[in-house]
């Protein structure tokens, strides 16, 4: 097996692990961070597949801009949830049901 093939195999394994962990971890912040790392690594896969055009777009969009969007949305959601709690509202119905189920 050539070294390039080892490189490909390692890259694919890391990519799949990254995606699976990002999609199944309960912690959303961790999920977003893993997704950003995933976007970075996907650009490397495009470079390996002789697609530098796609890699250029992915390098800028996949990790940088999508990451920025996700990070800012996550913190906006946290702020909203915190504000809701500060206003003394009861926890939303769905979460109550869940804590009962737990």
């Amino acid at each position: 097996m050539m070294i390039v093939e080892w490189f490909d195999a390692t890259l694919v394994i890391i990519l799949l692990a990254c995606a699976w962990l990002a999609l199944t971890t309960p912690n959303l912040l961790r999920a977003v961070m893993l997704f950003i790392a995933f976007g970075l690594l996907v650009a490397l896969a495009w470079v390996r597949l002789q697609a530098p055009d796609v890699a250029l777009a992915e390098a800028a969009v996949g990790s940088g801009l999508t990451g920025a969007l996700l990070l800012s949305t996550l913190s906006a959601m946290q702020r909203a949830a915190q504000k809701r709690r500060a206003q003394g509202e009861a926890a939303p119905k769905s979460t109550k049901e869940e804590s009962d189920a737990n």
Binding site: A22, L23, L28, V32, F35, V42
Partner: peptide, 20 residues
């Protein structure tokens, strides 16, 4: 948020099939 992440991962999967 997780659903949006999942959609993005699906998209990358499709792109990867096309590019390969």
């Amino acid at each position: 948020l997780r659903k949006i992440l999942a959609l993005n991962v699906m998209g990358v999967g499709i792109f990867m099939v096309l590019i390969s």
